[in-house]
Amino acid sequence: EDGINLEEIREFAKNFKIRRLSLGLTQTQVGQALTATEGPAYSQSAICRFEKLDITPKSAQKLKPVLEKWLNEAELRNQEGQQNLMEFVG
């Protein structure tokens, strides 16, 4: 629908959760960090719904690039050390 690749979103949601957990981050931490930079659309409950795919494809499509960018950045910081990650997450 609307050129939205559901399979891709499903895959990303699954990987997002795995990668988030491997960084040792909670949904709350991700939500707080993103709410600070991106606004309330990225709250803990939004992250939770995204991971469960309990949102419309359109919403998922909107969240995905922001979550992807944030997660990549978080992983980079983590490679530089846990301290850097925690500063990034705030």
Rank of each mutant, 00 (worst) to 15 (best):
L6W: 15
E87W: 02
L6K: 09
Q44A: 15
S43Q: 01
P57V: 07
L23D: 04
N72G: 11
A60H: 06
P40H: 10
L25K: 06
E80Y: 10
R49P: 04
D2A: 08
E87G: 10
V89M: 13
A36F: 06
I9A: 06
E73M: 11
R19T: 05
E80P: 10
L76A: 14
R77N: 14
G90M: 15
K64E: 04
A13D: 00
Q44I: 03
I9W: 03
C48Q: 14
N15D: 14
S43V: 02
A33W: 12
I47T: 00
N72L: 12
S59Y: 08
A36W: 00
L76W: 05
T56S: 14
T26M: 01
R20E: 00
E51T: 02
N5L: 07
Q29V: 03
I55H: 05
K62R: 11
R20H: 01
E87D: 13
S43I: 07
S43G: 13
M86I: 10
E75F: 10
A41D: 14
A46L: 12
F88A: 13
Y42T: 04
K69W: 02
Q44H: 11
C48Y: 06
K52N: 13
Q32I: 05
Q44G: 14
N15A: 10
F88K: 14
P40R: 11
E7Y: 05
K17T: 12
P65I: 09
G90K: 10
R49M: 06
A74R: 04
M86G: 14
Q32D: 14
E75S: 03
T37W: 06
R20N: 00
L67V: 01
Q27N: 06
F16E: 07
F88V: 11
K17D: 08
V66T: 08
P65D: 06
V30Y: 00
P57T: 09
Y42H: 07
W70P: 06
K62H: 06
Q27H: 08
C48T: 12
N5G: 06
L71F: 03
I4C: 05
L25I: 06
A41E: 15
T37C: 09
R19N: 00
L34A: 01
Q32W: 07
L76Q: 12
T56K: 08
E38W: 12
A46S: 09
T26V: 02
V89N: 11
R19F: 00
L25R: 04
G31T: 03
T37Y: 10
T26C: 00
E80C: 13
I4T: 07
L85E: 10
L53D: 05
G31R: 03
G90R: 06
L34K: 00
G31Q: 05
C48V: 10
T28E: 15
C48L: 07
L6G: 07
A74S: 03
W70H: 00
F12W: 07
K17A: 09
L67W: 01
K52C: 09
I47V: 07
S59F: 13
L34E: 05
A13G: 02
R10L: 05
Q79G: 09
T35G: 11
A41C: 08
D2G: 14
N84H: 12
Q44E: 15
Q83V: 08
T26K: 01
G81C: 07
A60I: 03
F50V: 00
L63R: 04
I18N: 11
T56Q: 07
N84R: 14
E80N: 08
E68S: 09
N72C: 14
E7K: 00
Q82P: 11
S59T: 10
R77F: 10
N5Y: 08
L25Y: 11
P40S: 08
E73W: 04
Q32N: 12
I47L: 05
K64W: 07
L53M: 15
K62M: 14
V89K: 12
I18T: 14
G31A: 15
Q61G: 09
G31C: 07
S59A: 14
E80K: 04
K62D: 14
A60T: 01
Q27D: 06
C48D: 15
Q29W: 01
R49D: 12
Q79R: 12
E51H: 02
Q82S: 11
F50W: 02
P40T: 11
L71P: 02
A74P: 03
R77P: 05
T28S: 14
V66S: 02
E75P: 06
V66K: 10
S22K: 15
A36H: 06
E80V: 12
N84Q: 13
A46Y: 06
R49K: 15
R20K: 08
E1S: 08
E1M: 14
S22C: 11
I47E: 01
F88P: 13
V30K: 00
K14I: 10
N78M: 13
G39E: 04
E87A: 07
G39C: 02
A41H: 07
E68H: 02
G39W: 00
E73L: 05
S22Q: 15
Q32T: 10
R19P: 01
V30N: 06
L23F: 00
L21R: 13
V66C: 04
I18A: 15
E8A: 08
R77D: 07
A33D: 09
A33H: 09
P57L: 14
K69H: 06
Q32E: 14
R20C: 08
F12P: 04
A46E: 13
P57A: 11
L34D: 02
K58W: 15
F50I: 03
E7V: 04
T28N: 10
A46D: 15
G3Y: 12
Q82H: 13
F16V: 03
N15T: 09
P65H: 08
R19W: 00
L34M: 08
E7G: 06
L25D: 00
S22Y: 05
V89T: 12
T56N: 13
Q32G: 08
Q82V: 11
T28L: 14
E8P: 03
D2E: 12
K52A: 15
G39K: 02
I9M: 05
G24H: 00
Q27R: 13
L34N: 00
I47D: 00
Q27W: 00
G81F: 01
P40K: 13
G31M: 02
E68A: 05
T37M: 09
I55Q: 07
L53W: 09
R77Q: 09
N15G: 03
R10S: 06
V89W: 03
C48I: 07
L21Y: 03
R49V: 00
E1L: 05
E8S: 05
S43R: 03
E7W: 02
F12H: 01
R19E: 13
K14T: 07
Q44D: 07
A13M: 01
E51K: 00
E1F: 12
T28M: 12
L63F: 11
M86C: 14
R49N: 14
E87P: 10
L67Q: 03
Q27P: 10
A60W: 08
E8N: 14
L21V: 08
L85I: 13
I55V: 12
L63M: 15
S59W: 10
L76T: 10
F12K: 01
K62V: 12
Q29A: 03
K14P: 02
V66A: 08
C48E: 15
D54H: 03
K69T: 07
E11V: 05
R49F: 00
Q83M: 10
G39Q: 00
P57R: 07
A60N: 07
L53H: 07
K17H: 10
E7Q: 07
G90C: 11
S43E: 05
N15E: 09
E51N: 01
K14V: 06
S59D: 14
Q32L: 09
Q44W: 04
T37G: 04
Y42L: 09
R77V: 11
V30T: 02
E38L: 12
N72Q: 13
N78I: 11
T26F: 00
K62Q: 13
L76C: 04
A74V: 07
T35I: 10
N78D: 11
K58Y: 09
N5M: 12
T37K: 14
R10K: 14
